[in-house]
Amino acid sequence: MTRKVMRVINREQCIGCYSCMYACSRTYFHIATTKLSAMRIKNYPGVEGAFSIRICAGCPDPDCAKACPTEALTVRKGGGVDFHEEKCIHCHKCVDACLLDALQWDPVLKEPLVCSQCGVCAAFCPNNVIALVEVDDE
């Protein structure tokens, strides 16, 4: 089965402009910020110009969903997870379980910020760092 998921395709081309994070927050929350983005560009202290891109891998069998004690996160067809807010008990276990540090946390609502693999972040990347990529799970 082929499916489309987000991938980092040219990490070294990242200029750290955060346009991706702005795009995600803007699209889903109508807020101009980097903070409500379902992904993260990480800087390293004191290492000039080194960025690490933490983006939801759209796992077919995701650790975050496994870690959720209330099934607030369920496996989405095509990869990644769906979030069922009413079931969330705000325990943070999902975020702790994401080895990629890709799953973000909304500190106000105390909920995970789940990536829907829509690709708006990639559409606003000026340097072709991230993309929606077709993968084959065979």
Binding site: E12, I15, G16, C17, Y18, S19, Y22, T34, E48, G49, F124, P126, N127
Partner: peptide
Amino acid sequence: LAQQIACANCPVGCIHL
């Protein structure tokens, strides 16, 4: 030139390192 980097919210990236 090692790379260009950017100010936040600027896709231009004019900072040359």
